[in-house]
Computed example of a mutant assay.
Amino acid sequence: MLGGSSQSLRLAFVLDPLDHLKAWKDSSVAMMRAAEKHGHDVYAIDAATLCWRRPEPGHHAGGVFGEAVHLHLRPDDHDWFRETRREWLPLKAFDAVVMRKDPPFDFEYLTATWLLERAEADGVRVFNRPRALRDHSEKLAITEFDHYTPATLVARDAHQLQHFIDEQRDVILKPLDGMGGSQIFRIHRNDPNRNVILETLTHDGARTVMAQRYLPEISAGDKRILLIAGKPVPFCLARIPKAGETRGNLAVGGTGVAQELSPRDREIAEALGPILFKRGLLLVGLDVIGSHLTEINVTSPTCMVEIRQQTGFDAAGAFITALEHACGIA
């Protein structure tokens, strides 16, 4: 065995379809590789296969099931796994289940958390906890910690949003259920497209959005700070916008630069970490621009691969070690 515990765990990762994952940058793949390196059995369950059935005495076991694919992980990022077997298994068959499906946090995602919570009721360890996933909207969760945030408004009322833009003069608008920089707009007070952007993003007042004061410090990067078991990883990834962009997200062409946490980064991380961990959030990604907290990511925080490539720090391995501790074997 190359690392981790002397006791092997059976781990299930609830994911998007395997052919959607990009092994050269995906933190979920890094976690699965780390789990196998630690000597654990790794299974993937497509979130779309999660189901519950009523137990039938003498015929069917009941509970939450999924189509589990047992994987052998490979180092080749273009051919990164081998499927060794595939079977429908109850989640009770696993020592831990890791929920790593990407947003959007739509009704199907919500349903998955309900199913996973039923599995929890049957004694299954699920990380991050399903209730915590529901309770922490990745955009709205910052409102609990507003002393760290920039000027922010959450609303769908056009008058409130227009007043905020007039007041702040330069604003970022984003939907509450997006990821990867999707549908993020920057609006200046005198922007001639201001009204149509608001109408489009709010669906003419039918959808609530978040508005935040534009932070010029974005030019130095939108920093992703990882919290594992309530403690900050010592390096963050500053996602620096490409020329002509206001979004640093890697998905829209930003450049990721790993760097040590600043004193302010550490202050925010150490304040939030224990609170979020106590609620069942084993892995969290904080987004910080300059000195301001802008998002709290709990569904499928990423950037582990880039941090390891640039600093050598193995965040995926640290997560598996934390998972071992949570399962009581390390």
Score class of each variant (00 low, 15 high):
206 A>M: 00
206 A>I: 00
208 T>Y: 02
210 M>T: 00
210 M>Q: 08
210 M>K: 00
211 A>Q: 00
211 A>D: 02
212 Q>T: 11
212 Q>F: 09
212 Q>I: 11
213 R>V: 02
215 L>C: 06
217 E>K: 08
218 I>Q: 04
218 I>W: 11
219 S>L: 12
220 A>D: 15
220 A>K: 14
220 A>M: 11
223 K>D: 04
223 K>C: 04
223 K>E: 01
225 I>T: 01
226 L>W: 02
231 K>F: 02
231 K>W: 01
231 K>V: 12
231 K>S: 10
232 P>R: 08
232 P>K: 07
233 V>M: 14
233 V>Y: 12
234 P>A: 10
235 F>K: 09
236 C>Y: 09
237 L>E: 03
238 A>H: 00
239 R>E: 00
239 R>T: 00
240 I>W: 04
242 K>V: 08
242 K>C: 11
242 K>L: 10
242 K>P: 10
242 K>S: 12
243 A>Y: 02
246 T>L: 09
247 R>G: 11
247 R>I: 15
249 N>L: 04
250 L>R: 09
251 A>P: 09
252 V>F: 02
255 T>K: 15
261 L>W: 13
264 R>G: 06
265 D>L: 14
266 R>C: 08
266 R>I: 07
268 I>G: 11
268 I>V: 15
269 A>D: 14
269 A>T: 13
270 E>S: 11
270 E>P: 05
271 A>D: 15
271 A>M: 08
272 L>I: 11
272 L>S: 05
273 G>R: 05
274 P>K: 03
274 P>E: 04
276 L>P: 04
276 L>K: 01
277 F>A: 15
277 F>W: 14
278 K>E: 15
278 K>R: 15
279 R>P: 11
280 G>V: 14
282 L>Y: 07
282 L>A: 12
283 L>E: 07
283 L>H: 13
284 V>Y: 07
284 V>S: 02
284 V>F: 05
285 G>N: 12
285 G>F: 13
286 L>S: 10
286 L>I: 12
287 D>M: 02
287 D>Y: 04
289 I>M: 07
289 I>G: 07
291 S>N: 14
291 S>A: 12
292 H>Q: 15
292 H>L: 14
294 T>W: 10
295 E>Q: 07
296 I>N: 07
296 I>L: 09
296 I>D: 08
296 I>Y: 07
296 I>K: 06
298 V>F: 10
298 V>M: 09
299 T>V: 05
300 S>P: 05
302 T>V: 09
302 T>I: 10
302 T>R: 05
303 C>M: 03
305 V>I: 10
305 V>A: 14
305 V>S: 10
307 I>P: 06
307 I>C: 03
308 R>F: 13
308 R>G: 06
310 Q>A: 12
310 Q>L: 13
310 Q>N: 12
311 T>S: 05
311 T>D: 04
313 F>V: 15
315 A>I: 09
316 A>L: 11
316 A>P: 13
317 G>Q: 06
317 G>N: 04
318 A>F: 00
321 T>Y: 09
322 A>Y: 13
323 L>Q: 11
324 E>D: 07
